[in-house]
């Protein structure tokens, strides 16, 4: 089919992005000696365990030391510590690409697993819930308000809107979150300041879900407030520029009702860039989740990232998460491409 080609071309680029990020990760870990330190720590830990085990059987301290050293050499070879970091590079890249993300040092999943993939998978839905809810609300408000504002371009209200958009862009979502907590949780005591469930959490079922929503109000609200301004302004501008095109005048001259003109000949034509804006918003709030989840102690991937960076750094988790973020990012970009092809016949044949 005609639109397979553009999508495939795009997919290749995006896979290139994935690889490039991965190589960047591995190279910066290797070149800064980070990766060596990580592996040494792992080896050291295993050797400590071995020493206690060996001490049971080998009494002579000199003998014990020799046995331990032999084991250490073995382990170092196993982890590739005897080679320089760049010779390990292909292996590492391959491992991460096959989603073999390794074990966390300190962090655990709620079921106690140390496997990084378990930990991340457990957090993924929480982040997804947060940002998709915010996205849906932003999209709804942005589309309705943005397209109505286009009809009032140049009025006082329209100008006020552009100021709102600029301000909204200038506000960091995480700081807005702090304000929200101060106001709604601390001052008014209306909403929970953070976390995902009350303590103790309600039994499973509807109540639990409602509790979750209750806790999601402030983070979602913060996210929406900072994304909706720029978004509705871009919807407005996009709609406005389509509205000035000749075919809209023709549609009116045809005697189509105004509603049809707006929907079919303005919004529908402006849809591809509008959807682009939306997906770009999604990808940026994906990164932004690191901050907002930290503020609200929302146990998603973002908070996990923060936990892995702050306190005792958990390198395996950091690498894995950066990769997963890139993966999701790239997936969203590709989704955008698919939507674009569906929405705009012009790109189908190029």
């Amino acid at each position: 089919m005609s639109f397979v080609r553009p999508l495939a071309v795009r997919a290749v680029t995006l896979i290139g992005v994935l690889l490039a990020v991965l190589v960047l990760l591995v190279v910066s870990l290797g070149a800064t000696g980070f990766s060596d330190r990580m592996l040494r720590a792992v080896v050291g830990e295993e050797v400590r365990g071995l020493r206690t085990a060996l001490a049971e059987t080998i009494r002579d301290p000199v003998e014990l030391e020799r046995a331990v050293e032999a084991q250490r050499g073995e382990l170092e070879r196993f982890y590739g510590l005897d080679r320089s970091w760049y010779t390990r590079l292909p292996d590492t890249v391959l491992r991460v690409i096959t989603l073999d993300l390794g074990e966390a040092r300190t962090l655990k999943s709620s079921s106690g697993s140390r496997r990084v993939s378990d930990i991340i998978l457990e957090r993924l839905p929480n982040t997804a819930l947060l940002i998709t809810t915010a996205l849906v609300i932003t999209a709804a408000i942005g589309l309705v308000v943005g397209s109505t504002m286009a009809a009032r371009a140049g009025t006082k209200l329209d100008r006020a809107l552009s100021y709102f958009a600029a301000t909204s862009f200038a506000i960091p979502a995480w700081w807005l979150g702090i304000l929200m907590i101060l106001l709604f949780a601390f001052q008014l005591r209306l909403l929970p300041a953070g976390g995902m469930y009350s303590t103790p959490p309600p039994e499973a079922g509807l109540l639990r879900f409602l509790d979750l929503l209750w806790h999601a109000v402030l983070p979602v609200f913060s996210l929406v407030l900072v994304t909706v301004g720029p978004y509705l302004y871009s919807v407005r501008t996009m709609t406005l520029s389509v509205a000035q095109e000749d075919h809209v005048m023709v549609a009116r001259a045809k005697g189509l009702p105004e509603g049809v003109v707006v929907r079919r000949h303005i919004l529908r034509v402006a849809a591809p860039p509008i959807v682009t804006g939306l997906i770009l918003g999604l990808t940026s709030s994906l990164g932004g989740s690191i901050l907002i989840e930290t503020v609200f102690n929302w146990r998603g991937m973002g908070r996990l990232y923060f936990d892995a960076v702050a306190g005792t750094p958990d390198e395996a988790v950091i690498v894995a998460l950066t990769f997963v973020f890139t993966l999701l990012y790239v997936a969203a970009r590709w989704l955008l491409e698919v939507l674009y092809v569906l929405l705009d016949p012009r790109v189908r044949y190029t």
């Binding site: 075919h247 023709v250 549609a251 001259a253 045809k254 705009d344 012009r346």
Partner: peptide
């Protein structure tokens, strides 16, 4: 379009691209 229909100047841009 009933009493009067019009062919606009610049047919290139008179059609909805999507």
């Amino acid at each position: 379009w009933r009493t009067m229909a019009m062919v606009f100047q610049g047919a290139m841009s008179s059609l909805n691209p999507v």
